Amino acid sequence: MKIKLLFLSFSFSFLIVTGQNTPMYVGTYTDGFSEGIYKFDFNLNTGELTNLQLAIATENPSFIAYSPNKKYLYAVSESLGGTIASFKIQEYGQLKFLNKVSSHGEGPCHVSLNKQGNKAVVSNYRGGSAAIYNISRDGKLNEASQVFNYNTTDKESHAHSAQFFKDELYIADLGMNAVYQYKLKNNIYELTTPSIFKTTENPGPRHFALTKNGEFIYIINELSGSITSIKKKASGFEQIDFDATLEDTYEGKNACADIHLSKNELYLYGSNRGENSIAVFKRNKVDGTIEKIQTMPVHGDWPRNFTLDPSGKFLLVANQKSQNISVFSIEAATGMLTFLHSVKAPRPVCLLF
């Protein structure tokens, strides 16, 4: 009886320990030491990253995304003749290749899925296009159902990211200085707003974050080192704020990259490549405006993308050039960051929980 109880106690302890960890996948560029998509174990209590493994060998998976049920993973291949691939997640986190299709443009740099998990959208930076795909029940991608080409005779498009929201689709175009809004009608996405904000400058909208109710949209601008804050109204869209991501004293080159809201939507984070920092903003949940409260060095070079862990207690940064991932704790009361530690990773570009 004592042996049985000891065994049950050991088993229970083992379950507690393993329950502290969650997988984190890493999209990379494979022009160096990287071979494809990697996986870490992340400790939700301590913020430690351990057990680095190659999940699957694949070329330049620079951006990756889950299906809503986390049974499948999708990755762009930012290589000549761009593609988007689907993978099935195996029992121990390894990935099994399912299929791949054309991204319909060079330099695919972003992929996202709708909440139902039956549609994906890919943005092609060099091709200046975006493509929508229907996803089968087995996780495989069908050929593109719609392709939007944004290049004109006098301007060069650089579509950089896209997100579904209910029956809407938003696409950020860095080259055209626009964020397009589409609406789903008869299973086809139709353009309803050529751009949700207007500018005569060249900010270069790259990524954006939406509040859970879709009322506010925060756009990080790669070229101007700024965030444009937009409020969605019944009559259209209104710009409510425009804030610098850089310190006033910084004079070097910079290219903003990624942007995320905290889980409680009280704080907003943006990455600066050049200043090599995360800009932290406090958000007014009533009027949607933001105020910068911290500039946190990333302890690395060229913070491409970053993410918040499932608990909302940690922020992790992929430093592309220095080939490391930095982990920060998030102070619940203030949203501010504290550096914890860093681990080496081969050419990290995108982090996925």
Score class of each variant (00 low, 15 high):
Asn114Ile: 11
Thr18Ile: 15
Leu169Trp: 06
Ile278Lys: 06
Met296Ile: 07
Phe306Glu: 03
Gln239Gly: 05
Phe14Ile: 14
Leu191Ile: 10
Phe216Lys: 13
Val101Ala: 09
Lys282Asn: 11
Asn324Gly: 11
Lys198Val: 10
Leu268Ile: 05
Cys350His: 03
Pro68Thr: 04
Glu156Tyr: 11
Arg126Glu: 14
Asn149Pro: 03
Glu331Cys: 09
Gln163Val: 01
Ser161Asn: 06
Arg206Glu: 12
Gln163Gly: 06
Phe237Leu: 14
His110Asp: 09
Gly127Ser: 08
Phe314Ile: 14
Ala255Lys: 08
Phe216Gly: 09
Ser11Met: 12
Ala332Gln: 15
Thr338Val: 09
Asn114Glu: 14
Ile171Gln: 11
Tyr29Met: 07
Phe208Thr: 01
Ala178Lys: 07
Asn221Tyr: 03
Tyr72Pro: 01
Ser79Asn: 05
Asn186Thr: 10
Pro203His: 06
Ser161Ile: 07
Ser103Pro: 12
Ser157Asn: 02
Ser326Arg: 05
Lys70Ala: 09
Lys88Cys: 03
Asn149Trp: 01
Glu78Leu: 07
Ala65Ser: 05
Ala244Met: 05
Tyr267Pro: 05
Leu6Asp: 13
Leu80Trp: 08
Thr249Gly: 04
Gly93Glu: 07
Glu331Tyr: 01
Arg304His: 08
Leu340Val: 02
Leu261Trp: 02
Phe197Asp: 02
His160Cys: 12
Gly105Asp: 15
Glu35Gly: 09
Ile330Gln: 00
Leu184Asn: 13
Glu156Ala: 14
Gly81Pro: 05
Phe353Arg: 10
Asn43Ile: 13
Arg206Asp: 05
Gly252Tyr: 02
Phe208Asn: 08
Tyr250Ile: 00
Leu266Asp: 15
Met24Asp: 02
Glu168Trp: 06
Arg347Cys: 07
Glu251Trp: 01
Arg126Ile: 07
Thr192Asp: 08
Asn69Gly: 01
Gly19Lys: 00
Val26Phe: 03
Phe165Met: 07
Asn221Lys: 05
Lys321Val: 14
Asn142Ser: 15
Gly274Phe: 02
Leu49Ile: 09
Ser145Lys: 13
Ser79His: 10
Ile16Lys: 15
Ala279Tyr: 01
Asn276Ser: 10
Phe242Asn: 01
Asn124Thr: 07
Leu6Lys: 12
Lys96Thr: 00
Asn254Tyr: 02
Gln181Leu: 04
Glu91Ser: 08
Tyr218His: 08
His160Met: 08
Tyr267His: 07
Ser235Pro: 10
Ile220Asn: 00
Gly300Glu: 08
Asn45Ala: 15
Pro23His: 06
Lys100Cys: 02
Tyr25Asp: 01
Gly127Thr: 11
Phe10Ile: 12
His341Pro: 04
Glu106Ser: 14
